[in-house]
Computed example of a mutant assay.
Amino acid sequence: MAAGPGHPRAPQKDLPDHVREQKVFLDTELSPRLDRAAAGKGHVLFVDAAHFVFGTYLCGLWSILRVFVRAASGRQRFNVLGAWDAVTRTLITVTNTTVVNTDTMCDLLQAVAARALVGPVTLVLDNARYQRNDVVKGRAKELGIELLFLPSYSPNLNLIERLWRFTKRKAVYGKYHPTFADFRAAIQAVLDGTTTTHADGLASLMTLNFQEFENVSLLAA
């Protein structure tokens, strides 16, 4: 049952509040940094983690005859914490098969710093605990990296979310991988090919056009 007004668990913001907050963030925080990066005066990287679970990813299929799809066995995870440069369209990743946590985030910060990027470097990221804590903030400050946290519930403003969907379509949807090693290799191949094999496919996808929810209509059941 949904919490009513005044309840401790009641939503603190309604939909119009989120729409306004996103628009203000896009206009005053994100767009100016992207404009500077496009002019060669810095870098903006979008950060997020993807957790690819070894198993069967179904897709749409029309068939007159019944089709049986082989299914992989296991629940192992291939975790990818990535940073996508919005202008150069390059990807920096830290991967593992255990868990993404504060240490993983610090490893990504170090990997970004190792690129020795010219100009201010901004990471755009959500409010996950392993990203928004004193350890990560302190490490980012030491490395001269700005952390720009998205408004809550704003995956539409995180460019790298599109890359994760693209990767799933190319590597796992409707595909059978007999072993976890094969599964991981297929995903890694897509990630490794972002600037080569898949550059053309990503050119029209990873644009700086963000979906905004200015005119949202809801249907109540």
Rank of each mutant, 00 (worst) to 15 (best):
R139S: 06
A140F: 11
A140G: 15
K141L: 15
K141G: 08
K141Q: 15
K141D: 13
K141R: 14
K141A: 15
K141I: 07
E142N: 10
E142R: 06
L143A: 09
L143K: 11
G144E: 11
G144V: 03
I145L: 15
I145S: 07
I145D: 04
I145Q: 03
I145Y: 08
E146C: 14
L147S: 09
L147V: 08
L147G: 07
L148S: 14
L148K: 03
L148D: 05
L148Y: 04
L148M: 15
F149N: 11
L150H: 11
L150N: 12
L150C: 07
P151Y: 00
S152M: 12
S152C: 00
S152R: 12
Y153G: 11
S154V: 02
S154W: 07
S154I: 00
P155R: 00
N156V: 04
N156L: 00
L157D: 02
L157R: 04
L157I: 08
L157H: 01
N158A: 08
N158C: 12
I160L: 07
I160M: 04
I160P: 02
E161L: 00
E161K: 05
R162L: 10
L163R: 09
L163G: 06
W164V: 01
R165I: 03
R165G: 15
F166N: 06
F166C: 06
T167H: 02
